[in-house]
Amino acid sequence: MPRILIKTESLNFNHMIRYPDLQIQAEKLTFIKGPSGTGKTTLLKLLNATTSPASGTICLNDESIDSIDAVLLRQQLLLCGQTVYLFDSTIRENFAHYYRYRNLAIPDDDTIQKYLTLCLAPFPLDTHCQTLSGGERQRIYIAIFLSFQSDVLMLDEPTSALDETTSRKLFENLKLLMTDTNRTLIVVSHDQRLIETYADAVIDLDAIKEQTQRSVVNTALTQKEA
């Protein structure tokens, strides 16, 4: 029986988005999909408490996230946002900047290289990030977040600047790494092919919305055995 990691109950954001009650399993790869405006990004922000719901509760391992220190929660449920931010310096210095902000020891070159390779960005560490393309920057950004080895990694549109082959290869690596180490991956994406190939579970916010509109009891969490 898979363990439930995150549970939401009558979650309501800004009185505009009403979420059905959701469940996300531990140690699985869950995709969140739906057209824009259905609150996919907002859901991730609610989960890591960078924004608060108007009403409703979110539980992490059966404990309300309101009783967890918000900073510790974010370190545990790391959210790699949609907009890439890299410092105007080299790849190595970017890792260093972010690790310094977290008061952590800066990883050695081999470790950095390992995560870059996993994210298909095997560039020399002295490469200046300004010289890289949008897709390359996105992969470095993901590599930095991945290297923090959080229990849960949430990726918001991680393949928006990547071609299909690169996207598939990236997800192959991500899934292997996360399931190997018993960690949870939550991904917002609208790439149907990626979802079909890699999802352990899918939350379709649009389908749920339509169903709740028709007053059908929520059962929209589609499960797919990997």
Partner: peptide, 12 residues
């Protein structure tokens, strides 16, 4: 954007 990234990363 930088501030959002750092918040998401769990920086105070």
């Amino acid at each position: 954007n930088k501030i959002d990234t750092l918040l998401n990363l769990g920086v105070e």
